[in-house]
Nucleic acid binder design. Structure first.
Lengths: 144, 144
DNA sequence: AATGCAGATGCGAATAGTTCGCATCTGCAT
DNA sequence: ATGCAGATGCGAACTATTCGCATCTGCATT
């Protein structure tokens, strides 16, 4: 069990159980958001008894403590979970093969100020996903 | 039954049934996307036997024929449906009262070109929602 | 106007991801 | 080592959406 992870969890007032530490570390490694089920299969490889409800519950705890964000992508019906980093990310989704890749920067931040002025809203967050066809799927053998 | 609507539907090869015409006209009036259930309640007021499965099926037909777009918003678990207009729209969502208001223009279109160059993707679409607290909910009686 | 038929609708059951209730178990303070 | 609050495992419940099938409707044809 990684000491750093335990410390991060404790700092948030989260009891560092085996499942929680493991789940946090899975998420930390990812370059893209994962579904609860994807996490489940990764988790099962290492810890035999790891229940899907538990995964949902742990993820919700992480979301409440602002360690993780939870959202849906337009490619399917499932929630995706992603560890919160210093800079938030947006993703580019391939509509053919469902590949998910991060986009380097966020074009919305500057725009939020204008929106706030126009509407009187206090802006707190935003979602952006861009959909396209990846180089692989464009090729002669791509499925369109 | 509105002649214009019937013509629009026929032009897409959609048989203009009472339910379809009515549903199209409900959507046309809206300034914000509706859920199937919201449409159901509006529809029930006028046409007594109007089934929820039928609404979903009609909406799917409209989506296939590119008359309507279907997507989820971050405020709940439900699909939202919106008639397709010349200019696509994005929405500002109040995280307190779930108000949905349209944003005047789209800051992403110019950005898509850069993304395409950086990644080799052919960009086909994007989603954007901005979340905030509306003027009403900011007030002294707002629920935060 | 009556008829026939492809396709649309109504109804109820099925589906799938997520959440919940409850009994058992675990991490941690003592 | 012990006790207990809170975490987990398991199965059932929940909800938006979809599907299967019997009935009905719009429309072309007569």
């Amino acid at each position: 069990m990684n000491k750093d992870t335990i410390e991060i969890l404790n700092k948030q007032g989260i009891k560092a159980t085996k499942q929680r530490v493991f789940l946090y570390e899975i998420l930390k490694k990812q370059e893209k958001p994962l579904t609860a089920e994807e996490i489940y299969f990764l988790a099962k490889k290492e810890i035999n008894s790891f229940n899907l409800s538990t995964i949902y519950r742990i993820l919700d705890t992480f979301v409440k403590k602002k360690l993780v964000v939870k959202y849906k992508l337009d490619i399917d019906e499932k929630f995706h979970f992603e560890i919160i980093r210093e800079k938030h990310r947006h993703y580019l989704l391939c509509i053919c093969c469902n590949q998910i890749i991060p986009i380097s920067d966020c074009p919305i931040e500057k725009y939020e100020h204008d929106i706030a002025e126009q509407t009187g809203y206090v802006i707190v967050d935003h979602n952006l996903e861009i959909k396209g066809i990846c180089p692989n799927c464009q090729g002669p053998y791509g499925i369109h």
